[in-house]
């Protein structure tokens, strides 16, 4: 049987993106929530809870971007110039929040600037990622397989809303992560943060679910034609179930349920967007097969991925296992 390499690669990149979104999502989320924790001790605790992981988490972003280049160079060469502004903004924001992890500790007691850098960097990076998502969903104007639009084509109310939605979503991941991983007063407060964020995230999911089929016929047809409607109906039902799991989990002070429920919400949202847009990599023109790299290149790296990705996942789990357990106030690894 002939392997459908572009399809496999779309799956791998999808996996890298969802792992990135969930993993860096919770540590960016902790940054977004920084101003809500007024005490220095709470902020230390928030940062300590993600300090051993953030670097590995962010590496999935490189695998996502690098993987896109490897497997779909034509899409990479269209998306990056088209989303130039939000991509650059995201990178600059990630620089600030990344160095803040180290600088903040060394700068103490004069670390207020790096508190700000951590918060702003995390928030702006999340917002820019949402705008990138919105820009891609909206579609990119191409001619002869090259970007043929202007520098601000991506800018639309829809993209801005996606940006806000991702900020809320990451903050939800961050709050539920803290709920699972810290002890003391911060645990209680993280539950208070999580509830409105869950509502915001649900509102965002609802708006996207209504907005995109109304604006794009291909998406409406995908979801509302028979029998797709039947096959796809578990997606909204599961969304409601997961929201309930998070809410009840917070009420009952269950450690893991709210976080796992939030992760589930992200996976479902991602699946929903994939269903809406498949097989387009750059809507409305370029499919995964149009943008695919040479089969020899896709095959070469596929072999490497099959061997190496399980190893990477293995030691990622090991690192999370090593730093398991709750962090109390005033505790840390420094």
């Amino acid at each position: 049987m002939e392997l459908d390499l572009p399809l496999i690669w779309a799956g791998i990149i999808g996996l890298a993106v969802i792992l990135y979104v969930v993993l860096d999502g919770f540590d960016l989320g902790c940054g977004i929530l920084f101003p809500f924790a007024k005490e220095e001790r709470d902020r230390d605790q928030m940062m300590n809870s993600v300090a051993p992981f953030w670097d590995g988490n962010e590496t999935w972003l490189i695998l996502g971007g690098g993987g896109l280049w490897v497997a779909f160079p034509a899409a990479y060469a269209i998306i990056m110039p088209a989303l130039y502004v939000p991509v650059i903004v995201m990178l600059l924001a990630l620089i600030f929040r990344g160095v803040a992890f180290e600088f903040r500790w060394v700068a103490k007691p004069n670390h207020q600037a790096w508190d700000l850098a951590f918060w702003l960097g995390s928030t702006v990076a999340a917002f820019a990622q949402g705008v990138i998502l919105g820009g891609m969903l909206h579609g990119i104007r191409t001619e002869d397989n090259a970007f043929a639009g202007g520098a601000f084509d991506w800018l639309s109310p829809f993209a801005i809303m996606c940006g806000l939605g991702v900020v809320a979503g990451y903050a939800l991941l961050g709050a539920t992560w803290l709920h699972m991983r810290v002890s003391g007063p911060l645990e209680r407060r993280s539950a208070d943060w999580a509830r409105p964020l869950l509502l915001a995230m649900l509102a965002f999911i609802l708006v996207v679910s209504v907005w995109t089929p109304l604006q794009y016929d291909r998406i409406a047809e995908r979801w509302f034609s028979w029998p797709n409607l039947l096959y796809l109906s578990p997606v909204p039902v599961l969304t409601v179930v997961l929201a309930a799991v998070i809410w009840v989990g917070l009420d009952r002070r269950n450690a893991a349920a709210p976080f796992l429920g939030s992760v589930g919400l992200f996976i479902l949202s991602f699946a929903g967007l994939a269903i809406s847009n498949f097989p387009y990599l750059v809507p409305p023109d370029i499919t995964i097969w149009d943008a695919a790299a040479a089969p020899a290149s896709q095959m070469f790296l596929l072999v490497a991925v099959v061997i190496l990705l399980p190893v990477v996942l293995g030691y990622t789990v090991f690192v999370y296992y090593t730093f398991r357990g709750r962090i109390g106030p005033g505790e840390g690894y420094h």
Binding site: A51, P52, F53, D55, G56, E58, T59, I62, L63, G66, G67, W69, V70, A71, P73, Y76, A77, A293, A294, A296, S297, F300, L301, A304, V305, L308, L309, V312, Y315, T316, F318, V319, T322, F323
Partner: peptide
């Protein structure tokens, strides 16, 4: 050059970046 150089960068991520970033935590 993506067909040729892309996989080299991909291998860098898979063999090096994850290794560094993960064990850096420890």
């Amino acid at each position: 050059a993506g067909n040729v150089i892309g996989p080299l960068i991909g291998l860098e991520v898979l063999t090096a970046f994850f290794l560094e970033a993960s064990f850096l935590g420890i």
